[in-house]
Amino acid sequence: MIKLSPKLSQKFSYALLYIATLLAIVPVITIIFIIVKNGISAISLEFLTSMPKNGMREGGILPAILGTFSIVLCAITIILPVGVCAAIYLNEYAKDNFLTKIIKLSIVNLAGIPSVVYGLFGLGIFVMFFKLGVSIIAGALTLSIMELPVVITTARGALNSVPYSFREASWSLGVSRWQTIRHVVLPNALPGILTGTILTVARISGETAPILFTAAAFYVPHLPHSIFDQVMAMPYHLYIISTQIPNMPKNIIYGTALVLLMVVLTMSCIAMIARIYFKKRRKW
């Protein structure tokens, strides 16, 4: 083998890294481009605001949009208080002991459980054991447990970014720990928690496997009335129309994918912009 000079080997390696990065980035852009290019023609006000017709081969996707919206709304109202409280416990109260180690291990473990296993668990516990049926609330609870580790981790990061000295300054005046958290730590961690929440919304909107057996329905001829209703959901709807229905018009598939992708990507972009904005405005 020819031994390359260090300079040449550096150039060669840099080129390799450059190509690898391109390989990682180009598919994202391609995927987004394909969906946008093919889906844009299907998008119209009617597509977004009407019911599916003719075995879903025509009409719009309104029930799926509303279904996803209600599941996400429901899940976020459950998970946000619980996740933030858990993060407060870990960051502000927990001592460095065995219990805390177990909690952290549990969080790592929860984060790794496959989404379909959560779906199965939700089916067994919420749908059957608590008799909630296949419903918005059962799906939202399942998603909440699944997203809990992510919410805890981001909220903890936000709490942790508030300087410790602020807490000490507050304690030194005789203010209690909870009052310090409530009036000094939380207000300053809020931007971080908010960005994390938007990202969680994005992720929940795209999840399919956990709601497969807990919330989603193949077809529901009416819009959701209560949290105990079965609903159509965008990701599940997309799965159905792209694999289960023969002769499905391509533009409806792409249109649905585009709507879903836009919801998720818009949320992610908002979160990214918010993060930059808050960073610039940070007071300390």
Binding site: S165, F166, E168, A169, S170, S172, V184, N188, K283, W284
Partner: peptide, 9 residues
């Protein structure tokens, strides 16, 4: 009172 001034934000 601490060594560095710590005004709350």
């Amino acid at each position: 009172l601490f060594a560095m001034p710590i005004p709350l934000p």
